[in-house]
Design a protein around this nucleic acid. Structure first.
Lengths: 222, 222
DNA sequence: ATACTAAACTAAACCGTTTAGTATGTCCGC
DNA sequence: GCGGACATACTAAACGGTTTAGTTTAGTAT
């Protein structure tokens, strides 16, 4: 055997592609431009990735991996932990790149079905999982109502941050995170007191009950 | 003189461009494709608009004008009105087009600074104004705390809907709207009871006080 | 007189491949 | 351990074929 693929070239191309994508958009960035910017020959780029889509996916994974995500702390003060989670920003520079990259990723996802699915699950699933874990912590400690819908909770907490991300970088991040958690907190606690139950919860209970009945039926048949 | 520019051609091209943009994205839609789809010759398209960017802008304005926005009802039940507002979708067909167009608009805005600002203010300002009006109604009727921050309220209500719009069309719109309003409602009422005051409110009060002092000073001088 | 169509045309950009030649890491015989 | 042989990743450059934005031309319809 002989040499393996150059780590250096790989890294350099990813770096350049990330910057160019963030700066000009994905469609407006040619493979030639990436090769030129990275100082790696185009032929080599095509040795590392089959086509532009593959490179694109790699860039997204790369960017995503750079972002180690918010630390999962448990300070005992859940409300503070939630706020800290929403306030988290990866790093001064990385944040800027991610911010500029996001719109193009969204658009690209809208056009490329497969890529879109991969990206959404990969990127969002982590954030959602982390948040869900925090929410469950609240339920376990009896702070939130036991029937709290996790999907809804994630939307309520992540939504406003996304709104800001796309439409209003004018609004202060810290302040928005505070307000979002504060409102959610009050709402959740109020819901716990009143023993509220959402439509979705009811639907899920119905579904569960139906499933149970179906199982019952099947049992009888077999 | 002779004939003026054909209204029919103008309309037809806008229509075709809108659909193609929504369907394939802006970059992936060629002027040839637009001309072909509209049944208008390419030369004529270039008689109506100087270049692709001009047509692009016209499409955005066109789409935006099509959307008449949610009706401003006042049923007496504010909570129901809020839900109705968030649930609103323009029309079975228009909604689909706007939904598909949105990601591309976001990306286009990210690349075209000037267009981005114009679009964001145009599109968002209306939604925000409508929502703010609803919120003020709640404050006036003593349902929400008097110190309710409108900017925060808009983010809390619109954010989750946007989150769904981009990441989770899987989540049911009606259900999400219900949950969002319900949580906001509980949170706001709880805040009213506890007489809460957000950071931003405090900052604004400080600013107002400062401004008043400045005015006082100026008065003395003049 | 001018808005239109249809079609050809230009000039440039793009993706992805290929070619020719260079550099570099691995393995084998010694 | 060492040096040459070999395999292969690399560079630079060009190329093929397609696609694009935008123009032009010749002719038709209003």
């Amino acid at each position: 055997m002989a040499r393996g693929l150059s780590q250096r070239a790989h890294r350099e191309v990813l770096e350049a592609a990330t910057n160019l994508f963030a700066e000009r958009g994905i469609d407006a960035t040619s493979m030639d431009a990436i090769a030129a910017a990275s100082g790696v020959s185009k032929a080599t780029v095509y040795k590392h990735w089959a086509d532009k889509d593959a490179l694109c996916l790699a860039v997204m994974v790369h960017v995503h991996e750079l972002d180690e995500g918010p630390p999962e702390v448990d300070s005992g003060d859940l409300r503070a932990d939630l706020k800290a989670y929403l306030k988290y920003q990866p790093s001064p520079k990385k944040a800027a790149i991610q911010k500029r990259l996001m719109p193009h990723l969204i658009a690209y996802s809208a056009r490329n079905e497969e890529f879109g699915r991969a990206w959404k699950t990969r990127v969002m699933e982590r954030a959602r999982d982390s948040l869900k874990k925090l929410l469950r912590r609240g339920v376990d400690r009896g702070i939130f109502p036991a029937v709290l819908d996790e999907e809804l909770g994630v939307a309520l907490l992540l939504g406003p941050m996304m709104y800001r991300h796309i439409f209003g970088p004018s609004v202060n991040l810290e302040w928005l995170a505070e307000g979002t958690v504060e409102s959610f907190w009050l709402g959740a606690c109020a819901a716990r007191r009143s023993g509220l139950q959402t439509e979705n919860q009811r639907a899920q209970r119905r579904a569960k009950k139906d499933a149970a009945e179906v199982r019952e039926q099947k049992k009888k048949i077999s």
